[in-house]
Amino acid sequence: MHLLLAPVRWLMHLIGVPLGWVQRTFGMGGMAAVFLAPNLLVFSVFIVFPIGVNVWYSFTGGAALFPAGRVFVGTEQYDLLLACDSYLDPFSCRQDRFWKGVHNTAFFVVAQVAAMVAAALITALVLNREIRGRGFWRAVFFFPVLLSPVVVGLMWKWILLRDGALNALLVSLGYQRIEFLTDPQWAMFWVIFVSVWAHLGFYALILLAGLQAIPHDVYEAAKMDGTPAMRVFWRITLPLLWPTMLVVLVLASIRAVQVFDDAYVLTGGGPGTATFFIVQYIYETGFAGAARNLGLAAAASMLMALVLVVLTLAQLGITAWRDRQEGKR
């Protein structure tokens, strides 16, 4: 055994040589910085540097692609984006499409997150029961999460087109065709529905884990007391699941603010601007077609980043609060 371990010991000794040098050079405190350096380098190159470039672009104008060729315009791009008679009426704003995107995104976040949390909770409650083929059903609900957003968008588009599968079904049952994608209300409904369908499995899984973490003896005590099922849900399940639901709420909100890919493929932002969201505004302003306004797109993305920072801080706060609550128990 001693002989067998010898190569391992020799290898450890070999690794110890550079590590010893690092420790002598940077001290014990500096070791952490050295270990973190590669990750920090990647983080800086791919996250911090692009953010810095984006901030610079948001204060510049012109058609040049590279920062050096761009003209400094101060806060002009922000002024243009924020110039409104009333923020409640997008068409009173100079950049009306940006504000239409803000309004649509706000509506989408409220409606989609509410629908998502409700649907994910119901799904998790059902999947948490002792039903036949539980593993299979869990896989079924999770499967859409694995699909590419473009595939999701295209698939539902083919279903919802004027001559799509759903209208064919309606006509075969004797009903009139419905213009699902050219009617503003229907289009928004389907964007929300498809988004919930595509992401439901992920949030249901988190809630399922939360449900399974609730101590079983609490339910047994309630059963012995003869507590009705609805009362068990409102008085035991929901309060104990609440910290997990808050995390789901914040994660779903962050994802909802970023809505773009599947919705863009499904409706292209239309009809008109009925399903036009902030990310599509940024994409079209900065990248689509030959007329690129990188400065305006960068400023819009900075404003959107502010919203995401607030939501992320909320999530971090909730997570810390939940940890404290669990520590108390």
């Binding site: 499409r97 004027r162 213009e179 994608l181 050219t182 409706t267 292209g268 932002g269 239309g270 009809p271 008109g272 601007t273 399903t275 036009f276 599509q280 079209e284 689509a288 077609g289």
Partner: peptide
């Protein structure tokens, strides 16, 4: 004309 072309998408698509 059908809205499926001009009315169905947004922007300069």
């Amino acid at each position: 004309m059908s809205k499926s072309l001009w009315g169905s998408v947004s922007g300069r698509t």
